[in-house]
């Protein structure tokens, strides 16, 4: 079974920072269609602050998730501060004692991230939020664990599931967040949170694959 070293995982965090920085304008533009257009800007600010404070430090993958989560929660605020902050610190918690991270471990980490999130938001699949990306990704990983699939294949499948989940938000009417007040008018537009969530999971997957 393939694994990656927790200590090599710093690169994964930097890949996540990189994807947010590259997609700053794209995320803000989608947000502008039904939100207030600042998602990319705020995400970029949070992830870049993490990069500034930690880029020259050595840290484990699980530690990096904790630092990133705390940076988002304590320094950025908005909606994404608590949302991503909770996901990343939850992931970190579940991975903190690991030297090597397997597919099963990674799936458990992501699940624990969602567990924390579910304590602060009530959104379910179909409510046009990042949950629409996160849940299919977790389900895909779980499924791969059950099938004893290879880590790389599982990550690629997770990416596909996450992308499909994010794309599905186009058909939904927003029930949470700023777009929820638009009702029918939110249909036809992607949920920005679901897109940033896909981008982050995708960056994580691609980067982990290089470490396997």
């Amino acid at each position: 079974m393939s694994t990656f070293d927790n200590k090599d995982g710093g690169a994964v965090l930097l890949a996540m920072v990189d994807t947010i920085q590259k997609n700053k304008a794209y995320l803000s533009d989608i947000d502008g269609l039904i939100g207030d257009g600042d998602h990319g800007v705020n995400m970029n600010k949070g992830f870049s602050l993490f990069e500034k404070n930690y880029c020259d430090k050595e840290f484990l993958f699980s530690e990096g998730l904790e630092y990133l989560g705390m940076t988002l929660m304590n320094d950025i605020g908005g909606s994404m501060g608590p949302i991503y902050g909770t996901i990343f610190t939850g992931m970190s918690e579940a991975g903190s004692n690991l030297q090597k991270i397997s597919l099963t471990d990674f799936a458990a980490m992501l699940e624990n991230g969602y567990k924390g999130l579910s304590e602060i938001i009530e959104a379910k699949v179909g409510d046009k939020t990042l949950v629409d990306t996160l849940i299919p990704a977790i389900n895909s990983l779980r499924d791969s664990v059950a099938r004893k699939e290879d880590f790389k294949r599982a990550l690629l499948k997770m990416k596909t599931a996450a992308k499909a989940g994010s794309d599905s938000t186009k058909n939904f009417k927003a029930k949470y967040g700023r777009a929820s007040r638009l009702g029918e008018r939110s249909i036809g537009v992607l949920d920005t949170g679901s897109v940033s969530c896909y981008l982050l999971l995708s960056a994580m997957a691609d980067s982990i694959i290089t470490l396997l």
């Binding site: 705020n42 929660m73 605020g77 908005g78 909606s79």
Partner: peptide, 12 residues
Amino acid sequence: VGEIFSSPTAAA
């Protein structure tokens, strides 16, 4: 105080 059009942090 939050960022523009964005909630302050829980810490704030």
